[in-house]
Amino acid sequence: MKLNSLAYWFIAFLSVIAPCHARADLVVVTGPKTGVPTLSKEEVINIYLGRYRRLPNGLPAEPLDMGEASETKKEFYWKLVEKTPAEINAYWARLVFSGQTRPPATVNSSDEVAARLMSRPGVLAYVEREKLDKRFVILYEFDR
């Protein structure tokens, strides 16, 4: 925990001194039982932004999102569709009132991510490569 908080602070520092977010190496992962080996970037976009609600194998897709203040979330959406979290929020704001489509569920820690990923198949998340668990299946890797 102490080490984690140290790394956190280090990353925070890095993010302050560097104008670019592209420092952390993000990957999209899922649990071992999902049964999907990999996803294209378009499939990631369609799932995360509410177009598809199922994975290619027909399993309902359950993407996870990080909390509002998360640097990771910020970096993920930038890398994915070049949008800021505020823009992503505005996007969802139009959809939520229709009641048909919901934004991804939000988790606040990596532990919770791991727990959810492991809880049932079809859950997706994006994590930093350093925090990768051996049990996770990498569905998509951003270009370095």
Partner: peptide
């Protein structure tokens, strides 16, 4: 933009609005 979002997500509700 709203219409394209509705089309993107196939959201009939939003499109109807």
């Amino acid at each position: 933009s709203t219409a394209s979002i509705a089309a993107f997500t196939n959201d009939k509700q939003l499109a109807g609005e």
